[in-house]
Design a protein around this nucleic acid. Structure first.
Lengths: 150, 150
DNA sequence: CCAAGAGTGGGGAAAAGTGGCAAGAAATGG
DNA sequence: CCATTTCTTGCCACTTTTCCCCACTCTTGG
């Protein structure tokens, strides 16, 4: 499981160096083959290739004539780009995706279990504060969540 | 599986050069024989020939008296045009189809699993942003999608 | 304080995109 | 029916970009 927030600077060529604590596991899990795609929020998702293929299977089986299904396929599969860790444990974040998430230099990498999220630093802190504010007002969680015990 | 966005310029003759990462696979899969047709959205669909034949089978079997089925057949089969990769990995996008999708120079090729979508650059970004905005407001996804875990 | 590992930047080689040119085919006019 | 012109298509070469590797510096831990 990947966890934790890490602040990472993209270099001038848009490359992102993975924190060294993940590198060995990424090597073992997927030999450095990663897939980067977009989320419905303005951030990128980074999956180990086998993990992504699993998701992709589920997506392609959705009915093609259903509009929301089609939309999801286009967003997720359409933006999914394969990347390979280089000798220094970096990936090149594809320019269209970098642009999508509004990433410049200062970014934040967030471990999310089977995947990572990559945010622009400013966008991340803004969103986080926003979520905290919302969570404080509303106690109306959907049913399944009500019963969750932390 | 084909995935990912690629920005591609059509040349003055309306030819589109496939990204090199796909070329080997296209050679193996269909020996460079592709079928281009239209979608219900203003974009083109590009299938490897065997894959298209499979789709076409399903389409011709639809009931001829059903109006929507008939409409689908006319759109998809009616516009389907066979194209062949040239020695440089390019196809000539047929002028009527180029016109249909409003393609000029700047286009975007989107991998969608078993096929590609080809959009005009402006149309693509406009649509994508529109989908994201919709996706943000409405959490009412059709049943199958609700339970999807990414 | 020294050493080792991680982060950063730059440079070079190879491949990919783009544009032009030439040859062949088709169509039209004499 | 033949010849000429134009349009199309395939090929080749050049330029640009991308990607990979190496070297240097900074930081951290012993």
């Amino acid at each position: 499981m990947f966890r934790g927030v890490t602040h990472i600077n993209l270099d001038a060529k848009g490359r992102m160096a993975f924190p060294s604590r993940y590198r060995e596991r990424l090597g073992a899990l997927c030999d450095g083959h990663l897939v980067v795609t977009v989320d419905r929020d303005p951030c990128l998702l980074v999956y180990p290739l086998p993990e992504w293929e699993h998701i992709e299977q589920k997506l392609v089986r959705l009915p093609s004539l259903n509009r929301s299904a089609r939309r999801l396929q286009r967003l997720l599969i359409g933006h999914a780009t394969e990347c390979q860790l280089d000798g220094s444990g970096r990936i090149l974040v594809p320019p269209p995706l970098r642009d999508f998430a509004g990433l410049d230099k200062r970014t934040v990498l967030i471990g999310q279990g089977n995947k990572f999220e990559l945010w622009g630093e400013a966008a991340w802190t803004a969103r986080r504060d926003e979520w905290l504010a919302e969570a404080a007002d509303s106690d109306d969680l959907p049913g399944d969540l009500e019963s969750l015990s932390l």
